[in-house]
Amino acid sequence: MAIARMEKVGRKPMKRLTCKVLGEISTSWPVWLFCATFICHVLCIRIYSYMNLWLKATQLYTTEEVNIILTAGHGTQTFFTLTYAWVLDAMACDGQ
Rank of each mutant, 00 (worst) to 15 (best):
F80H: 01
R11M: 15
Q59I: 02
A72Q: 08
V21F: 10
F38I: 04
A90D: 14
L22H: 02
F38P: 00
M14T: 11
T37D: 08
N67I: 03
P30M: 07
T63G: 11
I39C: 11
E64S: 12
G10C: 11
F79I: 06
K20W: 10
A4I: 05
M6I: 03
P30Q: 08
T63R: 07
M1L: 07
T18D: 07
K15P: 01
K20Y: 04
L55A: 06
Q59R: 12
G73A: 05
C19Q: 13
K8F: 12
M1F: 15
Q77S: 03
G73M: 01
E24S: 10
K56P: 00
T76L: 14
T76M: 12
L43R: 09
I45N: 04
T18Q: 07
Q77M: 08
V87I: 15
P30N: 13
L82P: 00
L43A: 14
D89M: 13
K20S: 09
S28D: 14
L17S: 06
T83G: 02
S26M: 14
L60N: 12
D89F: 07
R5G: 00
T62L: 08
K8R: 13
T76A: 14
A90Y: 15
P13F: 04
A72I: 14
Q77H: 15
K12A: 15
R11Q: 14
Q96G: 09
A2W: 15
I45H: 06
C44Q: 05
M14H: 09
E7P: 01
G75F: 07
T58I: 05
R11T: 07
T58Y: 02
Q77T: 05
W86M: 11
H74G: 08
A85K: 01
S49K: 08
I68G: 04
I45R: 02
C40Y: 04
R5F: 09
T18E: 08
C40G: 05
T27S: 12
T18C: 04
W54A: 06
M1S: 13
R16E: 15
L43C: 14
P30A: 08
T27N: 10
I69M: 06
L17M: 14
L60E: 15
V42C: 06
S26Q: 13
A57C: 08
M91R: 04
V9C: 11
Q77R: 06
Y84M: 09
R16S: 11
C19G: 01
R46C: 04
Y48R: 04
I47V: 15
A92F: 09
I3S: 12
T83D: 07
E65C: 03
I69R: 01
R16N: 11
C40V: 05
E65M: 14
D89H: 11
R46P: 00
I68R: 12
Y84E: 01
L82A: 12
L88Q: 03
K8T: 09
V9G: 03
I25C: 03
T62I: 03
A85T: 09
R16K: 13
Y50P: 00
